[in-house]
Nucleic acid binder design. Sequence first.
DNA 1: GCTATTTCGTCATGCCGATTTACAAATTAG
DNA 2: CTAATTTGTAAATCGGCATGACGAAATAGC
Lengths: 379, 379
Amino acid sequence: MRRRNLARVMHAVSAEGPLSRAAVASRIGLTRAAVSTLVDELIRSGLLEELGPERPGRVGRPGSALAVSGRGPAGIGAEVGVDHLAVCAVDLRGRLRSQAVRQGPNRGRSPRPVVEELTELIRRVVAEAEDEGLWPAGLAVAVPGLVARDARTVVRAPNLDWQDTDLGDLLPAGLPLTVDNEANFGALAELWLGDGTPRDFLHVSAEIGIGAAVVVDGGLLRGTRGFAGELGHVPVRPDGPECPCGGRGCLEQYAGEEAVLRAAGLEPDEDRVGLLAARAAEGDEDVVRVLRDAGTALGVALTGAVNLLDPERVVLGGELSGLAPWLLPSLRNELARRTAGPACPVSVSRLGPQGPLLGAAHSVVRAVLDDPATVAARA
Amino acid sequence: MRRRNLARVMHAVSAEGPLSRAAVASRIGLTRAAVSTLVDELIRSGLLEELGPERPGRVGRPGSALAVSGRGPAGIGAEVGVDHLAVCAVDLRGRLRSQAVRQGPNRGRSPRPVVEELTELIRRVVAEAEDEGLWPAGLAVAVPGLVARDARTVVRAPNLDWQDTDLGDLLPAGLPLTVDNEANFGALAELWLGDGTPRDFLHVSAEIGIGAAVVVDGGLLRGTRGFAGELGHVPVRPDGPECPCGGRGCLEQYAGEEAVLRAAGLEPDEDRVGLLAARAAEGDEDVVRVLRDAGTALGVALTGAVNLLDPERVVLGGELSGLAPWLLPSLRNELARRTAGPACPVSVSRLGPQGPLLGAAHSVVRAVLDDPATVAARA
DNA sequence: GCTATTTCGTCATGCCGATTTACAAATTAG
DNA sequence: CTAATTTGTAAATCGGCATGACGAAATAGC
């Protein structure tokens, strides 16, 4: 009970900027006295800060503005990409405070050396954050693959050639660890940082595989085994080309990165998305046609998903957002054609490829806001 | 806080049969003293009954067995089918206490006379329940169509030719009303009454349209507008025959009742499902082939759904269950073929066509168990 | 058959956390 | 300069559960 009220205070202050105790009380439906004791505890724990008296033109004694602390716990986000590693630290106010990136292909490398490099980046970012008065409250790692529900084990990451890898064994102990699919973290970033993003949407992100994250009522739908969102293997043409998954005509055969590059006559290479975008912008008709077809295939698969889930919107995120100008028209057209009544709106994430990393770091911050009591005990 | 503890007591007693106060206390993690006061309140409200002393062979003073009351509030469930109306009353113990059915086609009839007939059935069932010492705690109505999130308005019921009909205006006031899709209520019945049904599953039910209900963590996924679960219009063959929804090759064109009957060369008639089942059982090759193809189409659509949602299982319910013997082999085969690793298990509901009506009545009962305080105030 | 032991239900008491009430402090309105 | 308004805090109160003790009702052991 007290724990939930602490969380409600944190959320109110976090969401609506600096607030006085009285303002918080009226917002969350408690009395000023009760809020006072809650705020005292949160200030003692270093989660809230007193900014000093407000100076409003209104009558009455001015309140003392409270803000989420900029020197308390920080969320550490990390990302294992196919050709980069990245780490960042975000404070409770949601501001990016430190960052480190290492470019270089990870495909086919065994997990241990990759994670060792990642650990080095984490150490640098944590040290920088500590110099600014922050302390790490948790570590969240985004990986391009399926993650088991224990939130530690990478079951299968085809683009890295990793299988059944427990990252908890490889990463430094001591920090609470969460591992998740990068599409899931991207969707959470969209939910928390996107402007006007609803609480029910479908977030599509394609790197090499095509993943979707289903957000229902502000929470991720994970599935029994944690494998929900495998949009890439939704059948688009039941008699289409064979897919490594065993099926035929899966979406990935039409809109997956490999398939698109092959159809466009390009070699898989570094910065593949940038290459496609450049060619399309130059007016390369083959590339434009291939992307249009990919958009159509996405539209077919999304029609099924939209019929099943009735989301408020579909958001294209991750690397896909760079190709959106060429994918969107045919995608939207296909979706509209197949929908009776108004079609589900499709938009592009403004976070782009930054989404998963930011989502990971913010997930730690949200965990602190959702349960200040446990983190306060550690402070 | 007290409200939640009242609910926890009700759930414990409801789920695990007659229990003593001490047994309840150990199960929900409260002290015997606290449970005593909660139970007192629930007995005074008529939600619990004291059955008298237990007679166990164990040492110590025997407890006084508590059971959910069989003479308290009752849930009234109603169903508007394409060719029948049905109403039933279920007590807090989950037992069917009264029932009324009226056969006769409702297709194309305007809502008012249909609802008037339904109201008459409701009156009869409520009167019968009251004779047995029950009082109606709420009314839940299952309809074959899309229902808005206000849980009152039927947005579109193609098999009845109803549109934008607010049943709250037509039904007798006074009882708390919930209207929902029959597929949703069928899924809830499966969740609550099925044996071994998990908390994450996909419930497929086909009357004339093909509806699916998505159950996630023991709750229904409704979608923004309440339209989630429209499996019938998932594209199966993007270039297939045109569908009234505007799309092409929707599942309904292959596995919908109308399409199946047409393909089998049968006239749409009364008891259409029974006819198909009879023909198939006789070994009518055309019918067997048509059902096999429908199963394949269902398998394609379900592959998409399973990839997206990762449910623990798929359950075929409603009228579909009668045709399961001929649909299942090709459906399972298609699903397995298109799945890497173990395929999602598919089973058949044992509730069959009774599901929606029972689910509706039980939804009222669950609402009472979930919040005994509000209903106790009305008792 | 009698006592010890075990378990159940209830009562008196205390604690935690929020509300209620009262009041001093800091501002604006007149 | 006073009245009115609003904020933050302190003291008293109350709801709800835990704790500990006790009588009641059964079994176990002698």
